[in-house]
């Protein structure tokens, strides 16, 4: 493993430690599950929350703001691709061209979607008023990281830039709004359990 490998691994360890602290804080708080007998299935609710319930047509808000939602989905797919690109970057020369170009395309589109979101955050008065400096910084940082992932594969001299952005992103995750990627799983789980056991969500229930 080269020097960048060690630096990125160190930053990743920082992410894990930071999120570990968040996990400890979360688990340190009381959990108050509902005692009342269930009317529906909590398991089905959780399944719904992470699958069908995330589909663009499953919620009125995402149907109304379809483009904004899809922009967010594309951005997050791009972020995932960027992390995959980071993970496999030492072996990029051995990768099949189709896979390589696939990652480049996903990160490029994802990064642009991130910047489009940033523009919307600045341009839309309501979003701008809601946003904190951390929001602008986080979206910019992650969009740059995502774009750099693809760019570095096309232009190899940019690889150190990609690694620097990766390290910055990894280190910032536990501190800024990016940590919603961690809390998302808990929040959606609580949503699924709550509405699932009350018989409100599940397959085909929410929008009959």
């Amino acid at each position: 493993m080269g020097i960048w490998g060690w630096v990125v691994a160190g930053a990743f360890a920082g992410t894990v430690a930071g999120l570990g602290r968040h996990l400890a804080i979360l688990l340190g708080r009381a959990y108050r599950p509902e005692r009342a007998g269930a009317m529906g299935s909590p398991a089905q609710g959780v399944l719904y929350a992470f699958t069908w319930g995330m589909m663009p047509w499953a919620k009125e808000s995402t149907r109304l703001h379809l483009l904004a939602y899809l922009r967010g989905v594309v951005f997050h797919i791009g972020i995932g691709a960027a992390f995959l690109a980071l993970l496999v970057s030492p072996w990029r020369a051995q990768m099949a061209p189709a896979l390589r170009w696939g990652l480049v395309a996903l990160t490029a589109v994802g990064g642009l979607a991130g910047f489009a979101g940033l523009v919307a955050r600045i341009a839309e008065a309501r979003l701008r008023r809601l946003s904190t400096p951390d929001d602008f910084f986080s979206v910019t940082l992650v969009s740059l990281f995502t774009l750099a992932a693809g760019a570095a594969w096309v232009v190899p001299p940019l690889l150190p830039v990609f690694y620097v952005l990766a390290v910055a992103t990894l280190l910032y995750i536990p501190f800024g709004k990016i940590r919603h990627c961690f809390y998302f799983f808990f929040s959606r789980y609580f949503f699924g359990v709550g509405f699932g056991r009350r018989g409100v969500i599940g397959w085909g229930k929410a929008h009959e």
């Binding site: 968040h22 804080i25 979360l26 688990l27 708080r29 009381a30 959990y31 108050r32 808000s61 995402t62 703001h65 904004a68 939602y69 967010g72 839309e124 309501r126 979003l127 809601l130 946003s131 904190t132 929001d135 709004k177 940590r179 919603h180 809390y183 998302f184 808990f186 929040s187 609580f190 709550g194």
Partner: peptide
């Protein structure tokens, strides 16, 4: 835990 997750997870997307 539920309140904490609700406070932490918001990305202020405004949707």
């Amino acid at each position: 835990r539920r309140v904490l997750a609700a406070l932490e997870v918001c990305a202020r997307c405004g949707i």
